[in-house]
């Protein structure tokens, strides 16, 4: 089986400082990998480099494209990469305001992605938007409202709908449940898990919430100071951590 994403020796420096260093991993179709570590450990830098938001200093990011098989996305032309970002990829930002257009209606936010891949029939677009709002549990009575009138949790669910409506194969998520209260988090986790299963998505999830990765991720990468210090099966890394930093991270979680 060909990995959907194959990251090789990926490094990013900010001047003399290390963003991330020599990161290697393969993600297979249907797999969810969690990247954990404290703030400043390089998680978001790594995610940004893979998703084409940041220019890495070195390395390769091979994505298994539908048409031509594995290709290094860092060597693609800008239009090619943008096309990928609109079709096979999705990026869920921590702050929904970074992933939504706040002055466009909820339905418009979802429909816009469809139009970007060529949908033109207004009725179909609206029907799909209604379908997706329903899947993320937003009432279709709110379809014409702007996201600025939504709660934080609703905005995050709308962002997920906007991202997944085009049927992507790979989703990057940056702290998707950060900043949400716990009942909303539970709802999002339930939603994300169902979507991963039903659509066969592969996902890379950056978070510092170990409870979130335990429920969502198959595998974990633990980062510290820009480097990956430990990788493995999620429950194995959390229950039998080998590296000093992972042991500290796991033992620092407050029990509820």
């Amino acid at each position: 089986m060909t990995p959907i994403l194959d990251v090789r020796n990926l490094s990013k420096n900010y001047g003399r400082n290390i963003g991330c260093m020599d990161v290697n991993f393969s993600l297979y179709p249907g797999e969810v990998i969690g990247i954990v570590g404290e703030s400043g450990s390089g998680k978001s830098t790594l995610l940004g480099c893979m998703a084409g938001h940041l220019r890495p200093s070195a390395g390769e990011v091979l994505f298994d494209t539908r048409a031509e098989g594995p290709r290094d996305v860092l060597r693609m032309s800008e239009p090619e990469r943008r096309m990928l970002a609109r079709t096979d990829w999705a990026f869920v930002h921590q702050n929904p305001r970074d992933g939504l257009r706040m002055t466009v209606s909820a339905g418009g936010n979802v429909g816009e992605r469809l139009m970007a891949v060529g949908a033109r029939h207004y009725g179909d677009i609206r029907a799909q938007a209604v379908d997706w709002l329903g899947r993320v549990e937003i009432s279709d009575a709110r379809i014409d409202d702007r996201p600025s009138t939504f709660s934080g949790g609703m905005q995050q669910r709308l962002q997920i709908a906007r991202n997944l409506v085009t049927g992507p194969r790979l989703v990057f998520m940056d702290e998707p449940t950060g900043g949400l209260d716990v009942s909303v988090q539970a709802r999002l986790l339930d939603l994300l898990r169902a979507l991963v299963r039903d659509m066969g998505l592969s996902a890379v999830i950056v978070t510092h919430d170990l409870a979130v990765v335990r429920l969502l991720a198959d595998r974990l990468m633990v980062m510290k100071s820009g480097r990956v210090v430990e990788t493995g099966l999620t429950d194995q890394v959390l229950d039998d951590p080998q590296h000093a930093y992972t042991q500290l991270l796991v033992s620092s979680v407050l029990q509820v």
Partner: peptide, 9 residues
């Protein structure tokens, strides 16, 4: 048991 499940290394 945990080693048999791959939970402990």
């Amino acid at each position: 048991m945990r080693m048999l499940y791959g939970n402990y290394l």
